[in-house]
Design a protein around this nucleic acid. Structure first.
Lengths: 313, 313
DNA sequence: ATTCCTCGATGCAATTTATGCATCAAGGCA
DNA sequence: TGCCTTGATGCATAAATTGCATCGAGGAAT
């Protein structure tokens, strides 16, 4: 059985004759005749009563035609869908990021992206910032917001992410424009756990500076750390892409030897995989969007007064 | 696009590799590879990311696979349905007959037939007894209950249909075992219209006997005629397949030159058309059923005492 | 009754399509 | 580094589809 044969069958049924149908299908009459013969042979059921000059579907034929119509319709819809996917106006896009980046960067952008590309279904995949890269390599996501790259990935820079010290407004350090890791040597610290990429940067800086500050709490929830810092219980170290309340606390860039600690966030995709057109649009528009909108942008001017953050990779 | 290609695509997606899938499909690996290439070329969308040793569907591929599954499932269901139709256990049967025959013969039988063949859908097509033959020739019905045949039709005898005179029990003729058309010469008659085949038989007999009885009423409703006859308003001439009440009236066979006037009813079908197995069953079982059950059977003994009715065709 | 015309079926040759074999290039693994 | 597996490709072969010419049958017109 064959979509072609079914198409022929239906055309013959509609046209009321082999010759007429063959014309419509740009086929010769014998070809149509043989297609129906093959179909009848395979299904084991006569589809037409050949009565003299006329031609009429058997009751079996009628049923096959009904079902064949449905089948062809569905096949057509598949073709249409493929064309839509090809055009880039439709498709499914899985985007990965850390919970913070999804909340602060991707979600706001995607709500706009969805309006501009109603055919594209965007799905978020959330994972710790340190594990997003694997997800991308494995193909779980087509696009990821990361701070560390790989040869396998192509990418595009978006915005810098700094390491911030969040302290109570009453704290003596809160008047400073920046804090060096050395200054934190004796501060009781509120740190994120190692699932956060930013934790790695801070640990590395502490190691290099040869300091070992006391760790009061290690958490997976930045908000918890910030709340404790607000109560004066210590200094929270968080990346600049977290949501920081306007009142009660101050966020101050952390530096090491005068340079802010951080990485550029960039949007990455897998070089080895097919990268559909709408994914390219996503990347382009995201880059445009984050030129002016990204978490911690209000700190950027203060940071630029120090020095440009180091970019790895 | 092709059902075969879709099957291959899906098998590859499930098996996770061209070679493995090719094995399952009893195909060589290059053949599978080329089918996918053709599909990708036609749809214009890459279906797989070939990453090193591994293989993974693109998001487009995933969607095509989903839809392909549905398509193949529907195709399978079409095949199954065709097999069922072939087996003769399922199908649609359109049966034609006069309203009287449908009411008195077909409906009672079909309610039994449906129990024995739950897969067969039986539809009735009702028309005047004189027009059923055309319906059969045109293909509107596959099977018809008729009294007049044709070279085009095959058929099987079922039961005799006599012409009856229905009169009030008070009428002087009501004691007789039979009535000759000649006896009706001066009776006021209640006749069916010419859509009824039986009307033709009676007219022919009157013409042969050279009589011209007064026609009181010509109707399409046998019950009306019988009701009037019951009130003593005349003699109703009806075929023996109508429903005759037990009280108030007597039904007496009408003869011409000593022979009852009538035809054998038979079940007919179109020689030129495919006759599915279940239709054959229908005919066989209907013949069996009407051996002992047919309208007017209680009169049959009285008629046999006269002479066997003439059968035309 | 006869002739003509149309329709679908069939024989046959040609072409297009699909397949298998052998082989290649690339990536993963020991 | 060498080996093994995986998918892609060149090429020859096999299978299928198709078109042309033609046949036989059934209607329609004369």
């Amino acid at each position: 059985m064959n979509l072609r044969q079914l198409q022929t069958l239906i055309t013959i049924a509609d046209a009321g004759g082999f010759a007429r149908a063959a014309g419509r299908l740009h086929l010769s009459q014998p070809a149509a005749s043989r297609q129906i013969q093959a179909l009848e042979a395979e299904l084991g059921v006569p589809l037409f009563d050949r009565i003299g000059r006329g031609l009429q579907l058997t009751s079996e034929g009628e049923e096959i035609v009904r079902r064949g119509r449905r089948l062809l319709q569905e096949a057509g819809s598949l073709r249409d869908r493929a064309a839509a996917l090809k055009s880039g106006l439709t498709g499914t896009l899985r985007v990965g990021g850390s919970p913070q980046n999804i909340e602060m960067v991707l979600a706001p952008f995607v709500s706009q992206f969805r309006r501009w590309h109603p055919g594209i279904e965007v799905h978020f995949v959330e994972d710790g910032g340190a594990r997003i890269g694997n997800r991308l390599a494995r193909g779980d996501v087509q696009i990821a917001l990361v701070t560390a790259g790989s040869d396998l990935f192509a990418g595009r820079l978006l915005f810098p992410t700094y390491t911030l010290a969040v302290i109570s407004s009453l704290h003596p350090l809160s008047r400073r424009a920046s804090v060096d890791v050395a200054d934190l040597a004796d501060e009781p610290l509120l740190l994120l756990n190692r699932a956060f990429a930013s934790r790695g940067w801070f640990d590395a800086a502490c190691h290099s500076a040869d300091i070992n500050p006391p760790i009061l709490l290690e958490s997976g929830a930045p908000a918890t750390l910030i709340a404790l810092a607000g109560s004066g219980d210590g200094t929270a170290i968080v990346p600049s892409n977290v949501n920081i309340p306007r009142k009660g606390v101050k966020a101050i860039p952390v530096t090491y030897r005068g340079s802010p600690i951080g990485r550029w966030a960039f949007v990455a995709w897998d070089r080895r995989r097919f990268f559909p057109p709408f994914a390219q649009h996503f990347v382009d528009e995201l880059a445009l969007h984050t030129r002016d909108n990204y978490p911690g942008r209000d700190l950027a001017k203060r940071v630029r007064a120090l020095r440009r953050p180091k970019i790895l990779e």
